[in-house]
Simulated scan of single mutants.
Amino acid sequence: MCAAWVHGCIVRPRTLAERGAWRGMWAGYILRSLGIRMVIEGRPPASGLVVANHMSYVDVLTLGSVLPAIFVSKSEVRGWPLVGPLITRGGTIFLERGRARAAAEANRVVAKTLAERVPVVIFPEGTTTAGDRVLPFHGALFESAIRQGAEVWPASVSYSFLDGENAARTVAYFGDDTLMPHLFRLAGRNDVVAHVRFAAAPIAATDRARAAIAAREEVVALLSYDGLDSSCLDSAITHQQTATA
C-alpha cells in the first residue's frame, strides 16, 4: 500500500479511465501480497453500473482487480490510514451520509462517469455485513444509471479458505472491527480465496425502486457460499420500497 501511494504521487493518473486502471493494477498487487487468490465467474462488464453485496474493504480490492472501475464509498473512508489516500487517488466518489444533498451530488458524478463509459461500482446495502445475508438495497444511486440509460450489472463477492470452508467471518469487516488489527489478522491467513461472480445479463428496470429490488434478487441468486441466509430475500423484500426511497 505504501508503494502504491508513492507510485500514485509519481504517475498522478488524471482521467477517470486512468484512475480506474491504476486502482485495478494496485488492487491486484495488494491482494497477492495478502495471499488472497481470485476465482472469477462470468464476464466483467466493460461499462455500466455494477451492483454488489458488501462485507469488507476487501470487496473493493477484489472487484477493483478485475474491473477498471470507479467506486462509490462513504466519506469516512477518506480518513483511513493508507487506504484513504489510495482510494482518493483512484478516483473514488465519496458519499457523505446523513447530508440532504449528498445523494444528488454523488449521482451527478456517477452519471458523468457512466457517460464516459467507465464502470462504476456501488454497494447499495449502505453498510457491511457478516456475509450471512444481503440487506435491502438503497435505490438512490440507481437513479444516475436509469437517467443515463446505462446498464445495471449485478455481481457478488464471497470468500472461502483453500479447504473450501466459509471464510466470511474472517474477511468481513463490520461492527466494532478496526482497520489495522483486522488487516494484519487477514494478512496472517494466506489461504483465502475470493469468489467474484458477474450476472450473465444486466437487469431491466425503468425506475430506481424496481432496479434496487431486481438487483438484490440477482445478487442473492449469484451467492452460493455456505452460510448465506437465503430466507432473508423473502423477509426483507417487504421493506425494500422504504430502503429504495
Score class of each variant (00 low, 15 high):
residue 21 A to M: 12
residue 54 H to Y: 13
residue 145 A to K: 02
residue 168 A to Y: 00
residue 43 R to N: 15
residue 7 H to Y: 13
residue 124 P to Y: 02
residue 197 R to H: 05
residue 48 G to E: 00
residue 71 F to Q: 03
residue 143 E to G: 11
residue 213 I to G: 05
residue 106 A to C: 04
residue 167 A to W: 03
residue 41 E to V: 01
residue 25 M to W: 02
residue 214 A to K: 02
residue 148 Q to Y: 02
residue 191 D to T: 04
residue 96 E to I: 07
residue 44 P to M: 06
residue 231 S to Y: 09
residue 29 Y to E: 09
residue 35 G to S: 03
residue 142 F to T: 05
residue 88 T to Y: 00
residue 4 A to D: 11
residue 215 A to C: 07
residue 194 A to G: 05
residue 198 F to W: 10
residue 23 R to V: 07
residue 72 V to M: 09
residue 134 V to M: 07
residue 21 A to S: 15
residue 133 R to C: 08
residue 204 A to H: 05
residue 54 H to R: 12
residue 91 G to C: 11
residue 108 R to M: 15
residue 88 T to A: 09
residue 84 G to P: 11
residue 35 G to V: 06
residue 196 V to K: 00
residue 190 N to W: 03
residue 104 A to R: 07
residue 85 P to Q: 11
residue 38 M to W: 08
residue 5 W to R: 10
residue 115 A to E: 14
residue 67 L to K: 12
residue 217 E to V: 14
residue 242 T to L: 13
residue 209 A to K: 10
residue 178 T to M: 14
residue 210 R to T: 06
residue 1 M to W: 04
residue 38 M to F: 04
residue 98 G to N: 07
residue 6 V to A: 15
residue 70 I to C: 09
residue 43 R to E: 14
residue 78 R to K: 12
residue 167 A to R: 04
residue 113 T to R: 04
residue 68 P to F: 02
residue 209 A to Q: 00
residue 202 P to G: 07
residue 159 Y to Q: 02
residue 8 G to I: 09
residue 161 F to I: 02
residue 190 N to D: 11
residue 141 L to S: 11
residue 66 V to F: 06
residue 106 A to Y: 01
residue 54 H to S: 05
residue 45 P to R: 15
residue 193 V to P: 04
residue 73 S to F: 10
residue 186 L to G: 04
residue 179 L to K: 13
residue 145 A to E: 05
residue 50 V to H: 00
residue 129 T to I: 09
residue 217 E to F: 15
residue 103 A to C: 07
residue 28 G to V: 10
residue 185 R to Q: 12
residue 8 G to W: 05
residue 9 C to H: 15
residue 50 V to P: 06
residue 143 E to H: 13
residue 70 I to H: 03
residue 73 S to D: 00
residue 53 N to K: 01
residue 184 F to I: 14
residue 158 S to Y: 04
residue 35 G to L: 06
residue 104 A to F: 07
residue 91 G to N: 08
residue 223 L to K: 02
residue 20 G to R: 15
residue 132 D to Y: 05
residue 140 A to M: 15
residue 89 R to A: 09
residue 129 T to L: 12
residue 68 P to H: 07
residue 19 R to D: 14
residue 62 T to F: 13
residue 50 V to G: 06
residue 67 L to N: 04
residue 152 V to E: 00
residue 27 A to I: 11
residue 77 V to N: 13
residue 203 I to P: 00
residue 22 W to Y: 13
residue 230 S to P: 04
residue 86 L to F: 09
residue 242 T to G: 13
residue 7 H to A: 09
residue 2 C to T: 14
residue 92 T to S: 14
residue 154 P to Q: 03
residue 157 V to Y: 02
residue 53 N to M: 11
residue 221 A to L: 02
residue 24 G to Q: 15
residue 217 E to G: 10
residue 50 V to F: 07
residue 230 S to I: 10
residue 55 M to T: 05
residue 43 R to D: 12
residue 72 V to A: 01
residue 197 R to K: 12
